[in-house]
């Protein structure tokens, strides 16, 4: 239930920020290659994830962590991993 909830929240942020349809936001979709994002969009996306999930990740998303977030699944996995490590 929790992970579904996280996925839904991640997907909503992506839909809002990148102006894409919900169907396009598949787990494998790449922000840069499939969802029309540019480098500035990805910076803003990570800021939005950090803000939305501040209770789950309890801290900042580092630059090296942000660089690894290339697909929708990367983001969901990152947040779940943070939750599991509590």
């Amino acid at each position: 239930m929790t992970s579904n909830n996280i996925e839904a929240r991640v997907r909503k942020i992506i839909v809002d920020q990148l102006d894409v349809n919900e169907e396009q936001v598949t787990p494998e979709a790449s922000f840069l290659d499939d969802l029309g994002a540019d480098s500035l969009d990805t910076v803003e996306l990570v800021m939005a994830f950090e803000d939305e999930f501040k209770d789950e990740i309890r801290g900042e998303i580092s630059e090296s962590e942000a660089e690894k977030m290339r697909t929708v699944k990367d983001v969901i996995d990152f947040i779940n991993k943070k939750l599991a490590s509590e």
Binding site: L40, D41, V43, E44, M47, D51, E60
Partner: peptide, 10 residues
């Protein structure tokens, strides 16, 4: 500073 939009300058 971390929350400043990357779109602010442009």
């Amino acid at each position: 500073h971390r929350y400043i939009s990357p779109f602010m300058i442009p």
